[in-house]
Design a binder for these strands. Sequence first.
DNA 1: GTCTATAGTCCGATAGAC
DNA 2: GTCTATCGGACTATAGAC
Lengths: 205, 205
Amino acid sequence: MGKAVEGMSVISSRERLVEATRELLWEHGYTSTSPAEIRTRAAVGQGSMYHHFPTKVDLAAEAMLRNSAELEQGMDAYLNEAPSPSQGVRSYLSKPRDGKKGCRFGRMTLDNAVVENERLRAPVANSLTWYRQRIEQLLIDGQKLGELRDDFSSEAVAAAIIAIVQGAHVMARADQSQTSFDRVIEGGLILLEGLSLARTARTDR
Amino acid sequence: MGKAVEGMSVISSRERLVEATRELLWEHGYTSTSPAEIRTRAAVGQGSMYHHFPTKVDLAAEAMLRNSAELEQGMDAYLNEAPSPSQGVRSYLSKPRDGKKGCRFGRMTLDNAVVENERLRAPVANSLTWYRQRIEQLLIDGQKLGELRDDFSSEAVAAAIIAIVQGAHVMARADQSQTSFDRVIEGGLILLEGLSLARTARTDR
DNA sequence: GTCTATAGTCCGATAGAC
DNA sequence: GTCTATCGGACTATAGAC
C-alpha cells in the first residue's frame, strides 16, 4: 500500500481516484457522480480522497483536464491519417462513437454546476474549441487544394460540423438508439458533400 | 384557497405546480430541480404537492407532456408562415433562440435519471421525433417543388438539421456565449444551401 | 385540499488516530 | 498517506391534524 516503490507497477491511490472519476463523469455526469461512488470504484478510503483532493471540484477538474489532453491527442493522430483535408472532415464525422453514452465534453455542458464553475467549464470549452479549430483548418486546407468551394466561412461550417456530432449524441440518448446517431451522421455527410467542388464525382457511386 | 369557483381566474395549486415545474426543468434540469424549490415557486404547501402528484416523476412527466404539446404547436404555426418549404427549413434554423438556456428537450437527454425512466424519456424522444419528421416533410416538399436536389435522403438530412440546433445549444453553453450558438447556425445555413438546386442564385447576393 | 412536522437517506466535507 | 467515525445540511417522501 501507499506510494509505489520506484519501478513498481502499483497504481497510486491518487491515480486510481482520477481514473475512477474520469469513468464516472462520462457515465453519470458531474452532479450525479458522488465522492462515495468514486471512492468505492477507486478502492480508496474517505480520508485519502480528501488528502489528495480537498474538494469534489478539484478532483473533477483534474479528471477533465486529463480527458482533454488525451482526447485531443487521439483525435489529432486520427485525423492525421486521413489522405486529404476534405476526407479528414468526413473521417471526423464518421468516426465510430457510442451515441448512447454521449460526448465526454458535451454531456458536461447541460449541467449547471459545471457551467457555473470556471475550473470545470474551461476544459470543456477549450476542448470543443480545439476540435472546432482543427476542423476549420482542414476546411481551409481543402479550400486551398481545390477540394472544396471557397465561397463559405470555414469557421462557421467547422462549428456546424462539431455541432452535428454533439446533436447526434443528444438524439441518440433521447431515442436510446445508435440508429438515431447514425442517421444524423449520414445527414451530416450529405450536407458536407454539398461543399465539394467535385460534385460530378458523385456519379461514380 | 382551494379549487377556484366556476368562472374565477384563480389559478389552482395543481396548475401552479405544473407551471413552476416547467420553468424549473428548463432552468435547472430534472435531477437538479428539487420538490422544495417547486413548492416555493408555486407557493404551495408540502402536503398539497404530494396530494396532487405522488412523486417527483409524476409532476415532471405532466410538465414535460405540456411542454411537448405547446412547443410543437408553436413550431408548427411558425413553420406554416414560411413562403416555401426550403425557406421553412431555413426559418427553423434561424429561429431566434437563447443558446445559453439550452433546448427544453435536449437538456433532458444528458440526465440519466430522465433517460432511464420511460415516463420522462418518452415525451423528450417523441417531441424530437416530431420536429425531425416536420423538417423531413419540408425537405420532401422542397424536392417535389424543384427547390432542392432530389438525390439525398430527406430523413437523414432532417435528422442532421435538428442535430445542428441541439449541438448549437451545447456549444453555446460550453462557451457561455450566444455568439457560439449563432456561428453554428450560420454554418448550418451554409450547409443547407448546398442542397439547393438554384445554386447560381447565390451570385445575386 | 391544505397544512406542519418529521422520517430516513445520501450528500459533500471534516476530525483525528495511526 | 491512509484509515474510521462523524458532522451539518439537503434531499424525496410520509404522517396525520384541520
